[in-house]
Design a binder for these strands. Structure first.
Lengths: 206, 206
DNA sequence: TAGATTGTTAATCGATTAACAATC
DNA sequence: TAGATTGTTAATCGATTAACAATC
């Protein structure tokens, strides 16, 4: 069963709501409650929740604890994935400090850079290594995923290097479209694209 | 004319490709070329480009310079929007240093925090102010948008404060679903949600 | 001309919304 | 019982893909 991008995105939003309810010790939540918070349709919420094989109760809704665990299980928060950050610039360092990733199953082991000044720096128990030793560490720690935060002009070159080193998933934070073999999965993170969705939308009223 | 989220997202990707072609001094680009790079359908590319009122030439494609400018115009990269970052933690500081935003029409003027140690810090010509003076500066500089990067537990409280101060657009980087009046537009930036799309997808093969 | 590409329509596919019987 | 909610089907809506005439 394949879960679409849109459903995955909504499941993460439901997860935020459920975490909040859990902290407030509320035991049950209903689909209209979730729908109101997100301003979406309640039958859509129920349809999304069907992916989780979770059973709701008429008149009371779903158990917060169980529903939250089902989402975590379905999205794979438990099976932790190791990951390297490639490029220890501002964004790379910020992402390394962003502890929330581990809650979602993403374990950032280390950073890499080619700048000797940055090498051997340490932050949040994560060390910056020279890019040259990345292939060895990929094998040693069985890392399949890399977060790419290098300057634009090195993006393709570094991608080729990562692919050769055996990296299979690249989370691309550079504003470049990377070329890679078909079996390499690339997710282009376009920070501005989300933001443009509300700023550009206004144009229709012009 | 309303442009959907998906189209906006693709237009930003086309923009990356066009910037690359421009730097390589390539004059024309065709829809199959764009489609191949992004591994999508070429008729979809042509349909997206129709939003831009741009005219392609048979056998040669579209003029790179013109197409790029049309995208920038349609997505409003020219009409710069002022913006405040609220919360000068790791993520807030990283976003403040991320100069690329200005290319997309987003002008970050300043940061705000309630921690006296952070107040008066300065980075990239941007100063950190005490959150208390935000309402005054919102009026003074006519700021409608805020990037929310405060700790989770203050997210709702700060949102209420921003709404009272006259902020209309909130780009929410906290893992919280914010409550706000209907005329306030909120974009929930869920960094992990994109990443989960390739890690969670594998589950289908289990 | 032959071949590549655009622009556009029709066909397909998937996602959202509406509706409602079943349940407690 | 009355009322709220689930689970699910049908209807609607929108997005993607296929197809192809027109163009150069």
């Amino acid at each position: 069963m394949n879960i679409s991008d849109k459903v995955i995105n909504r499941l993460t939003l439901y997860h935020c709501i459920l975490t909040d309810y859990l902290e407030k010790n509320i035991e049950y939540i209903s689909s209209p409650q979730i729908a109101n918070l997100l301003k979406i349709d309640d039958s859509q919420v129920r349809k999304d929740l069907k992916y989780l094989n979770n059973i709701g109760k008429c008149r009371v809704g779903y158990k917060v604890v169980e529903l939250r665990e089902s989402i975590e299980h379905t999205l794979g928060f438990q099976n932790t994935k190791n990951c390297f950050i490639v490029g220890a610039g501002n964004l790379g360092l910020a992402l390394a400090k962003y502890d929330d990733f581990l809650n979602y199953g993403l374990n950032i082991l280390a950073l890499f850079d080619n700048d000797p000044i940055k090498v051997d720096m340490s932050l949040n128990d994560k060390k910056v290594f020279h890019i040259g030793i990345l292939p060895d560490l990929v094998k040693k720690y069985n890392v399949e995923m890399a977060i790419l935060t290098v300057p634009k002009k090195y993006a393709q070159e570094v991608t080729d290097f990562l692919v050769d080193a055996g990296i299979k998933y690249i989370w691309n934070f550079t504003p470049c479209i990377l070329k890679a073999p078909d079996d390499i999965k690339i997710w282009n993170e376009n920070l501005m694209s989300g933001c443009l969705q509300f700023t550009a939308h206004n144009k229709k009223e012009e």
